[in-house]
């Protein structure tokens, strides 16, 4: 089967796979790691006057309320997102089980 490359931002599922919990994540400690290359641990605290918005998996799902969605998009996007979120959450659960430290969500939300 011929393999065609599709640009990153064209598939919502692949975007969600990445943007929700990867990259720079505001979390409970500073841990810098470059997977597959190296692992550096940095213990540092970032002190700021405020961090007000903080979104995580479960909260992201909480936010998906059909009322806030434009009518045109509704059925399609909502279904996609719910399905996607559910499967990502399942992945996350597995990842956590595999030894990632749990996220101290409460402490980080203030």
């Amino acid at each position: 089967m011929p393999v065609e490359r599709t640009a990153g931002g064209t598939s919502l599922i692949d975007v969600l796979d990445r943007v929700l919990d990867k990259g720079i994540v505001i979390d409970a400690w500073v841990r810098v790691s470059l997977v597959g290359i190296d692992l550096i641990t940095v213990e540092a605290r970032v002190v700021v006057a405020s961090i007000e918005t903080y979104i995580r998996y479960s909260e992201a799902v909480t936010q998906i309320s059909p009322v806030s969605r434009p009518a045109v998009e509704q059925g399609h996007a909502h279904d996609d997102l719910v399905a996607e979120n559910a499967s990502l959450r399942a992945q996350l659960a597995v990842a956590k089980g595999a030894g990632r430290p749990p996220r101290p969500r409460k402490a980080a939300r203030r």
Partner: peptide
């Protein structure tokens, strides 16, 4: 995304 994992602790 898959190769950078930076977790930041923010404090007031």
């Amino acid at each position: 995304y898959n190769f950078v994992n930076i977790r930041l602790k923010l404090e007031r």
